[in-house]
Computed example of a mutant assay.
Amino acid sequence: MAPLQPSQPLADVIGSKPLPRTEIIKKIWEYIKKNGLQDQKNKRMINADDKTKGLFGKKQISMFDLAKIVNDNVQK
């Protein structure tokens, strides 16, 4: 896969280095797990913290929204 340049909100979470889409998703999940952002009652939901609030655009997202958020925040 070709490396993609992350937008500034995404770079705040994963770093500014261009990465393939698979690595971007992997790094986001590492951040989510490291910071305990997965909702305890509904594991399919991800709670935003200060860094991810700008990326997500709201307090909570579904894990299924993550692919769309990545698509909206990368450039080829």
Rank of each mutant, 00 (worst) to 15 (best):
K34R: 14
D12Y: 10
S62W: 05
D50N: 13
Q75D: 15
I14A: 04
N71Q: 15
I25E: 15
K26A: 09
G15R: 08
L10T: 04
N73P: 09
I69M: 07
S62K: 06
E23I: 08
K51F: 09
L10W: 08
I61A: 01
A11H: 10
A48N: 09
I46N: 03
D72G: 08
K59D: 15
D65M: 12
P9K: 07
Q75R: 14
I32E: 01
P6N: 00
I14P: 02
S62F: 05
D39F: 04
K58Q: 08
N47Q: 13
Q38I: 02
D49E: 11
K41S: 10
K51G: 04
D50R: 13
T52N: 04
N47H: 10
D49F: 10
S7V: 01
K41L: 11
N42L: 08
K53Q: 15
K58D: 01
Y31L: 04
T52E: 02
D12H: 12
V70F: 01
I69L: 12
K26I: 00
Q40V: 13
K68R: 11
Q60C: 10
Q8L: 12
M45D: 07
A48Q: 11
G36V: 05
W29S: 06
K33I: 14
Q75I: 13
L37E: 00
P18Y: 00
S7Q: 00
A67F: 10
I14W: 03
Q38C: 01
K33A: 15
F64W: 09
A2T: 09
P9H: 07
V13H: 02
K51L: 14
K76P: 05
I14K: 05
I28D: 04
A2R: 10
M63V: 09
D39M: 03
G15N: 04
I25D: 12
P9D: 02
K59I: 06
Q60W: 03
G54L: 12
Q38G: 00
I25F: 12
A48Y: 11
K68L: 07
T52H: 02
Q75K: 15
K26W: 02
N71T: 12
I69H: 06
T52S: 06
M1K: 11
K53E: 14
S7A: 04
P18W: 02
Q40H: 13
S7I: 01
K59L: 14
T22L: 11
G36T: 03
M63T: 10
R44C: 05
S16K: 11
K26F: 06
M1F: 14
L66Q: 01
Q5M: 13
D72T: 08
N47F: 03
F56D: 06
N71V: 10
E23N: 11
M63N: 15
Q8D: 08
F64C: 04
K41T: 07
D50E: 14
G15I: 03
I46P: 01
Q8E: 11
E23R: 11
P9S: 06
A67Y: 09
K17G: 00
G57W: 04
Q5A: 12
D12P: 00
L4M: 11
K58M: 05
E30N: 14
F56N: 06
D49L: 13
V70T: 04
F64D: 13
K58G: 03
K41M: 09
